[in-house]
């Protein structure tokens, strides 16, 4: 049974990575396409006999600025993906919950935009870093985001709230808006979510009054009951 759950988890994790990579490459390709068109436009302006020198110079400078901005955005996105990848290299590590949630939101923002759903952050500042498995935490949050994106209608919001509560960090994920009925199946079953949270040594529960789902994680690794070494 344990083996079956673990296998199911690995399959879902691979789908999760595939999804993140496909969103990311789409985003990257868009920035590269803008850079290509911008460089092309400079070439067009410089080779155009019609444009006056002053107009050509102004347009070229504006376009160069656009290339610089796009390069910056692309480089920043690459950094997020690199960090996301490294979390899988080294499963047990000390990390900031806020940063790992933020990283996931950046990589998944495009999917949310396409469905006209917004992500909102309400992170408590200066919460302590924890020792745990960030890639499994990201996977679990991804499953909850995916569920929100399936259930929420356009203009819905998914709010991510982090707080310190005693020896734990709580991540509250709240879906707001109109809900639609869907038969579409999610990436992970309740059984898999429970399996992951057990491995993280935390808890996951539905808040009363529709206030979303809360994940709690121990600040100290040793407070995890079933966490793998």
């Amino acid at each position: 049974m344990e083996y079956k759950k673990e296998h199911e988890l690995r399959v879902s994790q691979l789908k999760f990575i595939g999804k993140v990579l496909s969103v990311f490459t789409h985003e990257l390709n868009n920035h590269l396409a803008i850079m290509k068109e911008s460089i092309g436009l400079i070439g067009d302006i410089l080779s155009s006999q019609k444009s006056s020198v002053q107009h050509g110079l102004e347009e070229s400078l504006k376009t160069i600025q656009s290339i610089e901005n796009q390069t910056g955005k692309t480089s920043w996105l690459c950094k997020q993906l690199s960090s996301f990848g490294h979390r899988m290299d080294n499963p047990l590590s000390i990390f900031s919950v806020n940063e790992s949630v933020e990283e996931l939101l950046v990589l998944l923002n495009r999917i949310a935009n396409q469905k006209k759903i917004s992500f909102e952050k309400d992170f408590q500042e200066n919460i302590p870093v924890i020792h745990n498995d960030p890639s499994k935490l990201q996977f679990l949050i991804f499953c909850l985001i995916e569920e929100g994106l399936r259930r929420l209608d356009r203009n819905g919001r998914i709010i991510f709230k982090t707080t310190r509560s005693g020896g734990s960090i709580a991540i509250n994920i709240i879906q707001k808006g109109n809900f639609i009925e869907t038969d579409e199946k999610g990436l992970c079953s309740n059984e898999i979510s429970q399996h992951v949270i057990n491995q993280l040594g935390g808890t996951i529960y539905q808040e009363e009054g529709g206030e979303g789902v809360t994940i709690t994680l121990p600040i100290s690794r040793h407070s995890g009951s079933e966490m793998a070494d």
């Binding site: 868009n30 803008i34 068109e37 092309g40 656009s66 796009q70």
Partner: peptide, 16 residues
């Protein structure tokens, strides 16, 4: 296209 910078730049190039 929802990529404003892309579509605006491409539009300029096509107009030229």
């Amino acid at each position: 296209d929802d990529e404003v910078d892309f579509v605006d730049t491409l539009a300029q190039r096509l107009k030229m």
